[in-house]
């Protein structure tokens, strides 16, 4: 039997498809023409009611408008304020009394206020480089949050061992692969020292939304204690984070290291250990993203805590080397 010649790849939808549709469907009505062109991703074929036509590029970009992602609300963590204790006044500290002076006489406005020349041009906005480049975000995040599960490839050595040992096979052993089906909980440190990175926190949440979809990720915020992270509900009430078994936690924090030593906003070992205990009991793997370099990471974090340097130079490969084929979910 003669082999069939493989068909030519067609590539993206283009004018050829539009032409086919126009001719084969005999589209002579403007309204139908507009509908057909629109579902192909074209615009510019005038529709009586569409107003100013838009470019095809605009239409392609708007074909799937970005869904409204969850917006982590920036604000102070919900911690009851400590009572303020004011010191007793030390007594009179002024050596002389203050005498009120009359207000200064009104001056005529300066001449430059009358100047109607246009304001000088603004300086071009300095583009800030994000910590996670958009073209790398998907790969880095996949490597960071994937959970290990049996893949498609057989684990031949294990399989052969079982056959040789004569043990019955109830299922085939497979090599593990990373999967994102568990989703992720993102805990964002909105402490004061993280202020330079607030935009990156938002960017990270947006990247997770694009990668996972709205049902597979949750975003919580905290200031000093990740174990007290919360999200705001539609009723404007805080809903505290509780670890969900099997769902990895992505912690975006500088460990409070941007704050001066001794300040309570720096993450303390006791708080960190309590948080780790909480996640271990729930069998929840934790991965930390820190915008500070490794030399600034606390030494008492623990050997089994995985930390990645949240930096534009971070690549999926380095994260994969750290995490492996995915987080192990304990049974």
């Amino acid at each position: 039997m003669a082999a069939r010649r493989p068909s030519r790849p067609r590539g993206d939808i283009g004018l050829g498809d539009l032409a086919k549709a126009i001719v084969e469907l005999d589209l002579d009505n403007n309204h139908y023409l507009h509908l057909a062109a629109r579902c192909l991703g074209f615009e510019g074929l005038a529709h009586p009611d569409s107003g100013r036509p838009q470019t095809a590029a605009d239409m392609r970009m708007r074909r799937h408008p970005a869904r409204q992602t969850k917006q982590p609300r920036r604000g102070r963590a919900f911690v009851p304020p400590a009572p303020v204790i004011t010191p007793e006044p030390a007594g009179d500290v002024l050596t002389s009394t203050l005498e009120p002076r009359p207000p200064a006489a009104a001056q005529p406005p300066p001449g430059w206020l009358q100047d109607k020349e246009p304001a000088p041009p603004k300086h071009p906005q300095i583009i800030r480089q994000p910590l996670l480049l958009q073209n790398r975000a998907a790969g880095v995040l996949k490597a960071a949050i994937a959970v290990r599960r049996p893949g498609r490839q057989l684990d031949m050595p294990r399989l052969i061992d079982r056959v040789i040992a004569g043990r019955p096979l109830h299922e085939l052993p497979h090599l593990p692969v990373g999967s994102m089906e568990q989703g992720v909980d993102m805990l964002c440190d909105y402490g004061e020292s993280m202020q330079p990175f607030y935009a990156d926190l938002q960017g990270l949440a947006d990247s997770l939304a694009r990668l996972l979809g709205s049902s597979l990720y949750r975003v919580f915020e905290y200031e000093t204690d990740p174990g007290r992270a919360f999200e705001w509900t539609s009723a404007d009430e805080p809903l505290f984070w509780t670890p969900k078994a099997g769902r990895p936690v992505l912690l975006a924090t500088d460990f409070g290291r941007g704050n001066p030593r001794g300040l309570h906003q720096r993450l303390r070992p006791a708080i960190w250990q309590a948080f780790l205990r909480q996640t271990r009991q729930a069998r929840v793997p934790v991965l930390v993203c820190s915008p500070l370099p490794p030399t600034s990471w606390p030494r008492w974090l623990g050997r089994d805590v995985k930390v990645i340097h949240w930096d534009p130079r971070t690549r999926a490969g380095s994260v994969s080397r750290l995490v492996g084929s995915g987080h192990e979910i304990g049974r």
Partner: peptide, 17 residues
């Protein structure tokens, strides 16, 4: 269900409804 973005290369080859 639009819960996740589909790759642009894939979208460019599909009729949208």
């Amino acid at each position: 269900n639009e819960e996740r973005e589909l790759p642009p290369a894939f979208l460019r080859r599909c009729i949208s409804l």
